[in-house]
Design a protein around this nucleic acid. Structure first.
Lengths: 175, 175
DNA sequence: CGAAATATTCGGTAAATGCCGAATATAGAA
DNA sequence: TTCTATATTCGGCATTTACCGAATATTTCG
């Protein structure tokens, strides 16, 4: 009679596939999800050559992938003393941090651009004097107010731990 | 001497361009951002032919765009009595609603899939008995806990008005 | 500085995507 | 049901993208 036997490789592969899917949903390539998964389950930092070897992708592909994943704060690049130029990569496992960085960089930027556009439109529409302009102005102002409130929310999300926020919303019903 | 003169078309165009950008950020095509912008500033519901005419895109392009935008709850399709098969489209102007629907559908779905994958991996890794499996199990469980907390948060975000939430986080500092 | 090791960039190619217009399907009216 | 008006789907083309491997650039060490 044998031990109860699990297949760890199968378990990891399942998770990696889910990560590929997630990458896709958030607008990244599936290959990036896979590479991230490799790092997620790696016990030690991985070099570009390690990743090339273990993933089967070309080194150039892995290189650009790492740059992209770094931009999204999904991986960190480190160099080790005495290792020359060689870089090592680690996966960021705190997804909440990743999300916060995304809000802080991409979303905030988008909000800024839209707010600026809305302000400019407001100016043009205030100076114009037709009925149509009045209606447009109303729409622009309403949208502006949504963006303003969103900014408050994003601020809260980016400056609090997920535990604090989960705790906070947990009390939502009880007040 | 002339009136102070604004250019409403220019104001609208600026906003539409910002919408194109936003569409891109959220993984949609720029053309969809433009089409949404058309609807945003339209005072009456627009038919497919209207949109084709006003946007310059082919009817087939507009048709698929509308289907996609509908899926994301960015536009609504209506039909008018006595208008035969003709459909009319309106832009959803409540962005918070759009965001909530996105959370409810796409994100929740993604969370479900990842949770299932993590649960399966947990099973496999529990049954295995190596040191490596133990470390992986630890990682899987930590990720699982993040996803659990996220679910709480997403629930809160999808079931409250932005005003209520903005109010709530506004009191965050003062307690 | 020069040499060696490593990373990035770049041109090319196969695959995917966006858009168009024609063909097909479908809903509603007679 | 048949006819008409409208919407959707599909094949094709042009553009873009993802990936590769070779060429170039960069960093560190002697």
């Amino acid at each position: 009679m044998t031990e109860p036997e699990g297949d760890p490789a199968k378990g990891r592969e399942t998770v990696v596939q889910a990560m590929e899917r997630s990458a896709e949903l958030y607008g990244l390539q599936r290959s990036y999800g896979r590479l991230y998964g490799l790092l997620f389950f790696a016990d030690e930092p991985r070099s570009l050559d390690d990743l090339t070897e273990e993933s089967g992708y070309a080194k150039s592909t892995v290189s650009t992938a790492m740059s992209a994943l770094e931009r999204y704060h999904l991986v960190h690049r480190r160099s080790m003393p005495g290792e020359g130029k060689r870089a090592y990569f680690e996966g960021e496992t705190d997804f909440w941090r990743v999300f916060q960085e995304f809000l802080r960089n991409q979303v905030m930027h988008e909000v800024t651009i839209m707010s600026r556009a809305l302000a400019e439109a407001e100016t043009e529409l205030e100076a114009a004097d037709t009925e149509k302009a009045k209606r447009d102005l109303e729409k622009v102002r309403r949208l502006q107010s949504v963006y303003d409130k969103s900014e408050t929310l994003v601020d809260a999300l980016t400056s609090n731990s997920i535990d604090r926020l989960a705790d906070l919303v947990g009390r939502l019903g009880r007040e």
